[in-house]
């Protein structure tokens, strides 16, 4: 277990740019742009076509949007992670170093696979959560700018956040399962190219 944890930690250290630094930067930049945009009064909000009060649906919709965007980021990140991580060691000559360690190839491959569906999933889920939380003050700021928007109260926002988080987490997991490499038995039903057709190195 100690070795497996260390191998997963190794994956994090090797790919922290894609799954920690880049999302952090993205989050800061998008938040800054939104804050500046709202504070400066730019951006127009029009009455919704159906005439429904915006405040009743805007926050949950925004959270859902955030989860959808982050799951897109996760899928792209994992695609490149899985496509690259099994050959990167060979390319940068570190393969022989890892082979000199008393860990089986299966264990190393399992650590790589697990890192993607546990650690990196958890990190991106964390970013989605932070985004969802940050959306609330942004919505309050927007409401101050645009009287037609009624920001939800704290209790209502927390309830929306909780519900959408559960839905978002389920969505992220299901998305991952949907795009996960097929088992050998079901390989015949998978397309011959794309993320679903990933092949483990021999």
């Amino acid at each position: 277990m100690r070795a497996m944890t260390a191998l997963i930690k190794r994956e994090f250290l090797e790919h922290r740019i894609a799954f920690l630094y880049a999302p952090s930067l993205l989050l800061v930049v998008v938040a800054a742009v939104l804050i500046v945009s709202i504070a400066s009064g730019h951006g127009s909000i029009e009455q919704s076509q159906g005439g429904l009060p915006i405040s009743t649906k805007l926050y949950p919709v925004a959270i859902g949007g955030a989860f959808a965007l982050w799951s897109g980021y996760l899928l792209i990140g994992l695609f490149f992670y899985y496509a690259d991580s099994f050959s990167a060691d060979r390319r940068n000559n570190a393969l022989l170093f890892w082979k000199s360690m008393p860990q089986s190839d299966l264990k190393v491959l399992t650590a790589k696979a697990l890192a993607g569906i546990t650690l990196f999933l958890a990190l991106i889920f964390g970013f989605a959560m932070v985004t969802a939380i940050l959306l609330y003050p942004l919505l309050v700021m927007a409401a101050a700018q645009h009287p037609m928007i009624l920001a939800p109260g704290l209790g209502e926002a927390a309830s929306s956040l909780l519900q959408m988080t559960v839905v978002g987490a389920a969505y992220l997991v299901l998305t991952l399962l949907w795009y996960a490499p097929a088992s050998p038995g079901s390989q015949a039903y998978r397309p011959s190219s794309g993320a679903g057709a990933f092949r483990w190195p021999s």
Binding site: R10, F97, S100, M101, S104, K107
Partner: peptide, 21 residues
């Protein structure tokens, strides 16, 4: 191999240490 590597160490000319660490 994995069992053997508990008691065998090696350095190769083409082996490199993980550069990201």
């Amino acid at each position: 191999r994995a069992k053997l590597m508990e008691e065998v160490a090696f350095v190769s000319d083409v082996a490199s240490l993980p550069r990201f660490l």
